[in-house]
């Protein structure tokens, strides 16, 4: 990363300025994730006209609307289904899905595992803030045990998903996780996901200060971000000595690479064989 290219990155070139300031609450980590995505797009030199952003419903779904590119804001839980159709019809487009923990793992859980199984060349960025923020703070599939939400007034007793393990087991080509505090690392991870020829599932651990943080007394966003950092372990230190002391720490960085055939190629070959046979 050189100073000159960093200097030239102007986030405003990628934003729909007439919609700014965005609707997210003060301190919401989704904005930081959006910056990292736009920075990655800048560094990969992706033309905005060849870029399609598909996003679902929720706070995360609204993130896509602020990007000055081709964007689709679709049904709850279905951005991966729309993106699959879009990518197969227009393989020349760079398709990126922005989704949230509820959108991706609960309402769209089935679409996620089948998108992972097909391994189509998409990038799925899941912004995980452990809550349904937009609708008033209901429990989500990633809410930590014993945390309070409006639907778990006595604490959440359900264990959460480890979405990265889920995606890896379902066959996603590349699986990674990063926190919003590590902006350059997050940008590099997104770059890696976009360039990966296959389905890339990236979990971004974001913070919901206003609804989740306040109800659980987790502090304001700086405190939440620092505690996220304390509860994660970078892949750089994968085998370091502190591993035994933090058995429950989330790992960050690129976690899994599955070397599997890409769906669009396989589909094209399959169709070719059928056409040849029918001729």
């Amino acid at each position: 990363m050189t100073e000159t290219s960093m200097h030239a990155f102007e986030i405003r070139d990628y934003l729909r300025k007439e919609l700014m300031p965005h609707f997210m609450c003060p301190g919401c980590g989704h904005g930081i994730a959006l910056r990292a995505l736009l920075w990655a797009l800048y560094e990969l030199d992706i033309d905005k006209n060849n870029l399609a952003i598909v996003s679902g419903i929720g706070c995360s779904g609204r993130v896509g609307a602020y990007i000055d590119a081709n964007t689709m804001h679709v049904n709850h839980g279905r951005p991966l289904a729309y993106a699959t159709g879009l990518k197969l019809a227009r393989p020349d487009l760079e398709v990126i899905v922005i989704t949230g923990d509820g959108d991706c793992l609960a309402i769209g859980g089935n679409h996620l595992i089948h998108a992972c199984r097909r391994n189509l060349n998409l990038t799925c960025i899941m912004l995980n803030n452990e809550i349904y923020g937009m609708t008033g703070g209901q429990v989500s599939p990633t809410t930590t045990v014993d945390r309070f939400t409006t639907t778990t007034p006595f604490g959440n007793h359900e264990p959460g998903f480890d979405s990265c393990k889920l995606a890896a087991a379902a066959g996603a080509g590349l699986v990674g996780r990063e926190i919003t505090l590590q902006v350059p690392a997050l940008k590099n991870l997104i770059k890696e996901g976009i360039t990966h020829p296959g389905f890339a599932f990236l979990e971004v651990i974001s913070d919901c200060t206003e609804i989740y943080g306040r109800k659980n007394e987790l502090g304001e966003s700086p405190e939440m971000m620092l505690s996220q950092k304390a509860s994660t372990r970078s892949d750089v230190y994968g085998n370091s000595v502190d591993q035994p002391f933090r058995p429950n720490a989330f790992e960050t960085g690129v976690l899994t690479r599955n070397d599997r055939p890409e769906y669009a190629d396989a589909y094209k070959q399959h169709m070719g064989r059928i056409m040849a046979a029918s001729n």
Binding site: M6, H7, I11, P21, G31, I32, R35, V183, M225
Partner: peptide, 19 residues
């Protein structure tokens, strides 16, 4: 150091470093 620029969720800060 650009930390404020990177971590601003609202893109309100831009750091221009002239070398």
């Amino acid at each position: 150091c650009r930390l404020c620029e990177w971590l601003c969720p609202d893109f309100a800060i831009a750091v221009h470093v002239q070398k």
